[in-house]
Every structure is written in structure tokens, then in C-alpha cells.
Nucleic acid binder design. Structure first.
Length: 286
DNA sequence: ATGGCTTGCACCGCAAGA
């Protein structure tokens, strides 16, 4: 069991002189579905201090914007933009204040899709165009939420096609709620073609990657059995009964800049963990 | 096998997640 969080760990240790904008060097970008930012703020700040990511995309903040913990994250050294709502959904982007400039050209809605659910947040930062997605879960194949999921994904694909035209250095990351293929499922036979693995969902993801976006984790790790989510029940984490549904997609223009990809399982071992764990990508931007 | 956890909200159980 992990000890209680160290009270002094809110502010990350200074790691050399501040890096100046525009960014020039190695950048770490991460995605984490925190499953309630209110509950997970101590875990998030501890993880920021340990992992020192430059850009972080959060999902399921479950907070109205007025309740977003901007001050705590500023104290941890991060700027933030966010699009939240009460109880459900909610996305946010963080960027290291000492390394990166302000967020620009912030978008919180898919053009042409009237949707009160806060599931998308796009911004330009550090020379990258970053799109944070919390893809619809879908509940079950055939459910009305499943139809909403497929419709939402089709509209996102159109949006991303236009984003790529203007921003070749595109990063699309978040909780996709789709297992790209059977390597991303702990028991593909048991899961079958159920929700998160159904052929139409996988086809919708492939239609997005076909725009010229690479699943960055697979540039480095071809093996099965690497997951980013484990059910809270059945001791699923201990038994590695998981799924890889949290992805970092990068445009062709960034492919040669990618130097490493990782899933950080450590926060899943902490007290009161999110059911998702952070996924990371290192880019060498020069 | 739909339950098992965990969250938020609002009650004293519910919906939703994946």
C-alpha cells in the first residue's frame, strides 16, 4: 500500500533553469483519464512532480469550470484550459508554465455538432496542435448511446481532417474508449465484438488514423498485453485484466520526432487510484 | 453470469462508467 501523499510535494522540484518558449528539445506529452479531478487532484499533482510532463490532456474531470482547481495546478507549475460540466465528462489541457507559452486557438466544440457533453478540447501550444478527446463510451452495441458514439466519432473525424490541413504537427490524444485491436484486450475471445471492440467502433478509429495519424505507442511496442485501464472490480489490475483504450495519435509530420512511448502504471498502485493510468509520448522537437 | 468497484448526486438508492 502506498503511503499518504507527501504534503510538500505539491510544487515540483526545480529541474535546472527554466526552459524558454519556443520549445526546443525533448517534450513529454501525456493523457490521463482521472475519473474525477476533485478526488484525484493529490494523485495528479504527485504524478506531475514525478513525471514532469510538458503537456497533459485530462478526461473525466467531472467539474464545472468554476470549480476547476486552477490555483493548485498553477502552484504545481502548470497553465490550464478546460471545458467541464457538472457530474459527467469534462476535459482539460495542462502545459508547463516554465517551458511553454499560452494556449492559443482554443476550441471546445465540434463544428456542426450541437452537443452539451464536454468531450473535446483543442488548443495550440508549444508549436503543436493538441486535441484532447473523451470519446463516448457507448454502453452496449445497439444501445442509443452506441449510435451517439459512432455519430460523434464521424463528426470528430471530419474535424480532425480540417485540423490536419492547417496543423501538420497534430497530436490527438485521450480516452478513445476503443481497443484498436486484439493485442489491446486481456481476453479477446471473452470480449469478442462487445462494446469497445466492435467492428464498427474499430472501423471508426481506423477512419481517423487513415487521415495520417499514428498510434504512437505501437511505433515502439508491438507486443500484446500493455493496458491503460483496469476494472476496479475482481482485482483486475493485479491480474492485468485490462484494456488499452487511452491513445496518443500523432500526425505524419511528427512521426520522426517521436523518441519513446510509455504507459505509467505507477499511479494505478497508489491509494484511491483512477481506473485509468497515464499514457505518455516523448517528442524531440528541434 | 452484469454482479463485482468507484464516482457524483441526492437521498437512505440511483445512473454511469468500460
Amino acid at each position: 500500500m502506498q503511503a499518504a501523499f507527501l504534503p510538500g510535494l505539491r510544487n515540483p522540484p526545480a529541474a535546472g533553469p527554466p526552459r524558454r518558449f519556443p520549445y526546443n528539445g525533448r517534450m513529454k506529452i501525456a493523457s490521463w483519464n482521472v475519473n474525477s479531478l476533485k478526488v484525484r487532484l493529490p494523485q495528479l499533482t504527485q504524478w506531475l512532480a514525478a513525471a514532469q510532463p510538458d503537456i497533459v490532456a485530462l478526461q473525466e474531470t467531472k467539474l464545472e469550470d468554476a470549480r476547476f482547481p486552477m490555483d493548485d495546478l498553477a502552484a504545481a507549475g502548470y497553465r490550464a484550459v478546460f471545458a467541464g460540466q457538472k457530474t459527467y465528462n469534462g476535459v482539460a489541457l495542462l502545459a508547463r508554465a516554465d517551458a511553454l507559452g499560452d494556449f492559443e486557438d482554443v476550441v471546445t466544440d465540434i463544428p456542426g455538432l450541437d452537443d452539451p457533453q464536454r468531450r473535446i478540447l483543442a488548443a495550440t501550444v508549444g508549436g503543436l496542435r493538441v486535441v484532447d478527446l473523451y470519446v463516448v463510451n457507448g454502453k452496449a452495441v445497439g444501445d442509443e448511446k452506441y449510435a451517439y458514439k459512432l455519430h460523434w466519432l464521424a463528426r470528430v473525424r471530419e474535424f480532425l481532417a480540417r485540423e490536419l490541413e492547417r496543423h501538420p504537427k497534430l497530436v490527438v490524444l485521450g480516452d478513445f474508449n476503443i481497443c484498436p485491436d486484439d493485442r489491446d484486450v486481456y481476453d479477446p475471445q471473452a470480449w469478442g465484438e462487445d462494446i469497445l471492440c466492435s467492428p464498427p467502433e474499430r472501423a471508426a478509429l481506423q477512419a481517423i488514423t487513415a487521415l495520417g495519424l499514428h498510434d504512437s505507442f505501437r511505433l515502439f511496442q508491438p507486443e500484446a498485453g500493455h493496458f491503460s485501464w483496469w476494472d476496479y472490480r475482481q482485482a483486475a489490475f493485479r491480474r492485468n485484466m485490462g484494456l488499452r483504450i487511452d491513445l496518443i495519435l500523432i500526425g505524419e509530420a511528427l512521426k520522426s520526432a517521436a523518441t519513446a512511448a510509455a504507459i505509467d502504471r505507477e499511479p494505478r498502485r497508489w491509494e484511491r487510484p483512477s481506473d485509468h493510468t497515464p499514457v505518455m509520448l516523448e517528442l524531440d522537437i528541434r
